[in-house]
Amino acid sequence: MPPRRFAFGRTDDAVHPDTMRAALSEFIATALFVFAAEGSILSLGKLYKDTSTAGGLVVVAIAHALALAVAVAIAFNISGGHVNPAVTLGALVGGRISLVRAVFYWVAQLLGAVVAALLLRLATGGMRPVGFSVASGVSDWHAVLLEIVMTFGLVYTVYATAIDPKRGHLGTIAPLAIGFILGANILAGGPFDGAAMNPARAFGPALIGWRWKHHWVYWVGPFIGAALAGVMYEFLMIPAEAPRTHQPLAPEDY
């Protein structure tokens, strides 16, 4: 059995049809997720002047959870359903995806988020995407720590339910489990920093809405948390003799 190692990939992977299909799948899934997730916030802003209420937080958490569950499900068999640059990094440091393919995923995810935010701005008559910001009284580094912890939980869940070769029939509920942990984390961290856990989710609205304050928090925190989760699950939870491929859910699992 080959040793665990970081996979760079081959140059011809960049033009392989499977890579193109996977990147397109990530683009579409991320766009659908960001459109529904950010759209839920804009909808609350349209209905109520003040969206910083307990009811608004619950609505946003549910919208994000359902949107992510669907986005993961529709991309699962093609790209693995990452829908998040941090998840892709977690799979990369664990050797479950090559660097070449990871770069394609990152580009597709960011473009998908930007297109979704742009479509939202056009469809809502020019409403400026809200994106994410650190709450008053919360320091940037506290927000980074919060993003690390929440993203760790998200990526650990992805590994346990979608990537682990021994997941078995548990893989059928992976999209729901991933959506649920996202929604739960939003309820826990939303009032403090918005609970992004996803650099693409933060980047699209930030670019289209031109809101860059504290934006670095939503890259540093998720990437650190994802890398920690990937390394911990890959090297401590998965046996060394387990298959080294990163495969989407097999059809016979359904």
Rank of each mutant, 00 (worst) to 15 (best):
Y233D: 11
T157Y: 07
P205R: 08
P222N: 05
V130R: 10
A195V: 08
L154P: 15
A177C: 07
A162Y: 05
G190W: 05
G225Q: 07
I178Q: 03
I238Q: 05
F192Q: 09
G209I: 03
P191W: 03
P191N: 04
G204F: 05
W216A: 09
W212T: 13
G204A: 10
L228K: 01
G153F: 14
R128S: 15
G189T: 00
E147I: 07
G230V: 11
A123P: 07
A196W: 01
V130C: 01
L182Y: 08
D164G: 06
V138H: 04
G183N: 05
P205D: 08
A240P: 00
T157Q: 12
R128P: 02
L170M: 08
K166P: 01
W212A: 01
N185Y: 00
A174W: 01
R121M: 15
A229S: 03
F152M: 10
M127Y: 08
A242N: 07
A174Y: 03
A206D: 10
P199Y: 00
G125K: 02
A184I: 09
V158L: 15
V149A: 15
I148D: 11
R167M: 09
S133G: 12
P205I: 09
Y159P: 13
P191F: 00
I238R: 05
M197R: 01
I163A: 13
F152Q: 07
